[in-house]
Design a protein around this nucleic acid. Structure first.
Lengths: 120, 120
DNA sequence: ATTAATGCAAATCGTTTGCAGCGGC
DNA sequence: GCCGCTGCAAACGATTTGCATTAAT
């Protein structure tokens, strides 16, 4: 076995949802398979997976969320139901614009749009 | 006196810098004028000023920063020097686009672009 | 036997809150 | 005397870390 079963489980959980889960949500889900798994292990593995480029961390206000989708994209967040939806705002164009206007070499563009989603 | 001197000082500090300061930075600056000011007072007033629309809070990863500029704008963050610069990415256009494509009523658009600034 | 990763608990960081006391009308 | 605001200290939620133990080769 190349990786610990804890790490494989955590990776699996993140890659199996579109819900942009928090560490706490992942921890609870993981406990159903490995009942004595600890929060420290969850965080250590999430950080490792993020550093290895397997998953991507982003921040929703001041709390960390984890995303299986590592390619550049953006988020819509509904203030009523809390749902976070993936969208694409053509960040390549923004990247060029930022270079032309400000001579700034962008390597990460985060667009988070909050408001009311189409279910409300 | 309409407001406490603590509140006036805190508002003054935020409105007197372009550095997008953290609460801790503001606290240290405030201590030079009111040496026994407390962190609780700083946070209470920052939240109040934010709710009153006098200043605007935003999050840099998982920590709060405070901005005197309350009109919609975006940020460039340099990964080398940490400097945060104000820019304008025409969010009105994005707002329309999000409505047309996703039927999502945007009321806040946060664009944070990280990379290397023109001093490096 | 070595090395990496674990569970647990304590520590840390940023932020909020309860409370008794103070300041301005 | 009232009400809002303060300083202080304790509490809080999210995350990290030290350490002794375990798991995998």
């Amino acid at each position: 076995m190349r990786f610990s079963k804890q790490r494989e489980l955590i990776q699996h959980i993140v890659q199996g949802t579109n819900s942009h889960p928090t560490a706490y949500w992942i921890f609870n889900k993981a406990k159903k398979k490995i009942s004595n798994i600890s929060m420290g292990t969850v965080y250590r593995n999430l950080n490792k997976l993020n550093n290895d480029g397997v998953i991507k961390i982003f921040y929703d206000n001041n709390i960390a969320r984890y995303d299986w989708n590592t390619v550049a994209h953006d988020h819509l967040k509904c203030n009523k139901c809390g749902k976070i939806t993936d969208i694409n705002m053509h960040t390549k164009e923004l990247q060029k614009k930022v270079w032309n206007q400000y001579k700034f070499e962008a390597d990460n563009i985060e667009i988070t749009i909050s408001g009311i989603c189409n279910n409300h």
